[in-house]
Write a protein that binds this DNA or RNA. Structure first.
Lengths: 246, 246
DNA sequence: TTCCTGGCTTGATCTTAATCAAAGCGTTCG
DNA sequence: CGAACGCTTTGATTAAGATCAAGCCAGGAA
């Protein structure tokens, strides 16, 4: 419809191009990307791909939320990734999925056929460089998550998760991070439990406790208000690292 | 001494070049690397760098073992990385260390000054591509680790750690992974506890239990024999994923 | 040799979160 | 409308691992 705006419009529509490519884009590259790209939609609860399945694309979340989970034979589940809009899924150079990918809300992904995408990466260095940056960010997030799983109490885990969601949500909406934060929990109690390495009963109890103590205000089961972000961060037990340097 | 062998010798000496660069090396690039590279040695127990400190290099482990740890204000510690020879440390594009890095054995690292290394990355695409691959491997390892921290029992955690060390050790020594495996634990009980999100007492008890049950044979406190790797893997509870594809 | 010291083991007890169980609430479906 | 279902809350009990507390053992120093 707006031909003159086409390229810019594509950037907004498709975060991978915005985040990984467009910052230093080039007409020939954009044209190649255009040819290997397609969209897929999933309903809430649908599985995008099972661990071990052939995966012939890489993708970026356009809207909605997806999770990566791992499962032990006896059914114990651990979430290992939470994908919000603009996050990247899939690994260049690997044929099969390493995790179950599930849509927890209605989900739209922008996919790129894997083989041509890999070829594009070889010929356009800044795509690999941008992808490296994003992967390093994910690795940092994973290590923060490891601290949570290994050493935090149930209450601290819940507070940490709420802080993480509030922060990412605020970033997505470009809200100022000061003052009251309001958002809807994008996860069920069970999904939160899988994120935190807890049972859903413990999640429910700790949420009730935080509510009772005034750390959060709950309206219904999903709508959360954080009256005091500082307070929540304290509950999360995160290292503020204002410590004494030697 | 062996001038004709110089480049190859350097590759062996310095894993980052071997793993990230040399596979597709080029004389000019090698020359640049040579100029920005230097070695540092640490004694067992020494801290390489504290979280938050300025970090003006990236590096690769040449020999010995280093750990990455995160700490909560009250002293709870969680290991988030275990670096064996050829592993990479440091993040291009970041000024300060995000974790405490500690030498758990005597350690030699091959360092590259960060600024010139970043410039080299911009001009030599395959370095960024190789680094991306390595980072994706680390991310996979981190996610496996998250499953361990969030959902495995103490016994499974110990068995998993032993399997991980046995596997990496076998890889380093280029031993055939069949039959009996023998190795020395490179970590104290406390370090194992920090790896696994347990206390050192629980680590000790579970090691004793695995010994009692014949899953491992202990000679002294550190020398371990795995009589049956299959058995150990079962104890580790890992998803063998020989499941039915749909 | 004896005495330390640091790393490790083992025991007793306590706490946290898991498990088992029941019921509440809000939607959707018949 | 009422039944049924999915998600959640809450309660009672149990179990896994943490915590507190001795001791053990090997190696190094005096």
């Amino acid at each position: 419809m707006h031909d003159m705006q086409h390229e810019h419009h594509e950037c907004v529509e498709c975060p991978i191009r915005h985040r990984a490519v467009c910052s230093r884009c080039d007409a020939a590259e954009l044209h190649k990307l255009e040819q290997i790209k397609y969209y897929r939609s999933y309903q809430a609860g649908q599985t995008v791909i099972w661990s071990g399945d052939r995966m012939d694309f890489v993708a970026s979340v356009v809207s909605g939320i997806a999770t990566l989970t791992q499962t032990l034979e006896d059914g114990r589940r651990q979430m290992v990734g939470l994908l919000l809009p603009s996050d990247f899924v899939g690994r260049p150079g690997r044929a099969t999925a390493a995790y179950d990918v599930t849509a927890t809300t209605d989900l739209v992904m922008c996919c790129f056929r894997k083989r041509p995408f890999e070829e594009l990466m070889l010929s356009t260095p800044h795509v690999a460089q941008r992808l490296l940056e994003m992967t390093l960010d994910e690795l940092d997030a994973a290590r923060e998550w490891m601290l949570l799983l290994g050493r935090k109490t149930a209450r601290e885990k819940i507070a940490s998760l709420l802080a993480i969601i509030a922060r990412r949500d605020a970033t997505l909406r470009l809200r100022a991070p000061k003052g009251q934060l309001v958002f809807d929990l994008p996860l069920t109690r069970e999904e939160m439990a899988d994120y935190l390495g807890l049972t859903l009963e413990t999640v429910s109890r700790q949420i009730s406790a935080l509510k009772r103590d005034g750390v959060i205000i709950l309206d219904g089961k999903r709508h959360v208000t954080i009256p005091d972000l500082e307070r929540l961060m304290e509950e999360a037990g995160d290292d503020s690292d204002g410590g004494v340097p030697e």
